[in-house]
């Protein structure tokens, strides 16, 4: 079903997809008024893969995430999670099926502490009792270097810590598929490096990741496959090196004259 995009060949990732698929989109389209922000997008992500999504501003990357999480519903096409059709399922139900996300602009629960932010995500995202997720949440805090801020109100955090909290809270909801939306944006080189290490560790644990990012070197140091969006269309999928070398991508995305 997957439309072979121009400028890419079925690589190792393509063959893997015969195995368990965590996510499959088929001809998904979404318009806001006359503007088609997602245009017959099809792709799938095998279990355990890290897929990067790049594209110029306004290419429809965040909209694509909102379609996957169920925050908005598509006009056409279908979305499957682990083989199950979720096209019309509300966001809340998809979380319980293992879709965790971070927001491009951090959206912490500001009146709760950092730890309580995670407790909420874990208790509801995994539909478990609060007492049963306490240890797990503390471990995620340690892993994302937020333990020292555990009892501070989330509203008082710095940008880096807010980004960490986005990641930590998404983790606490117990995702099989983790969607990261420009989590490295706005960070210094050192901060970015620290965050990339954390993400790499999560990936090594077998969590499937889809990551939208403009900081390409950070992205390419983690993902195995890149997908390029432009005007809501997939214009390329393939190994990062291939994609970065492709003429079309360089022209459209990087704006280079070739």
């Amino acid at each position: 079903m997957q439309r072979p995009p121009r400028g890419s060949s079925p690589g190792a990732a393509g063959r893997q997809s015969i195995m368990t698929e965590v996510l499959r989109l088929e001809n998904v389209s979404k318009s806001f008024g006359a503007l088609r922000v997602t245009d017959t997008v099809s792709f799938s992500v095998p279990k355990g893969q890290a897929l990067g999504i790049i594209g110029p501003n306004g290419a429809g990357k965040s909209t694509l995430f909102n379609l996957i999480t169920g925050n908005i519903l598509p006009d056409r096409g279908s979305i499957h999670l682990s083989g199950q059709d979720v096209t019309r399922l509300p966001a809340m139900r998809r979380v319980r099926m293992g879709v965790g996300r971070s927001f491009q602009i951090p959206q912490p629960f500001e009146g709760l502490t950092v730890y309580e932010n995670l407790l909420t995500a874990a208790a509801f995202g995994q539909a478990r009792r609060e007492a049963d997720v306490q240890t797990e949440c503390a471990e995620i805090l340690a892993e994302t270097e937020l333990l020292r801020r555990a009892n501070d109100l989330a509203g008082s955090l710095s940008l880096l810590d807010r980004k960490r909290l986005e990641l930590a809270r998404a983790m606490a909801s117990g995702p099989e598929l983790l969607l990261l939306d420009e989590i490295a944006g706005g960070l210094t080189e050192g901060e970015c490096q620290a965050l990339v290490e954390t993400i790499r560790a999560l990936h090594a644990r077998g969590i499937t990741i889809i990551w939208i990012e403009h900081v390409l070197h950070a992205l390419n140091s983690v993902v195995e496959r890149l997908l390029v969006l432009d005007f809501g269309k997939v214009i390329g999928v393939g190994a990062p090196a291939e994609i970065m070398a492709s003429k079309e991508v360089r022209e459209i995305y990087l704006g280079l004259e070739v």
Partner: peptide, 16 residues
């Protein structure tokens, strides 16, 4: 508290 602070984010961690 999560819904009061940000109901969009609350829904995306599974809060009804």
């Amino acid at each position: 508290a999560a819904v009061r602070d940000n109901d969009n984010a609350a829904r995306s961690v599974g809060v009804d």
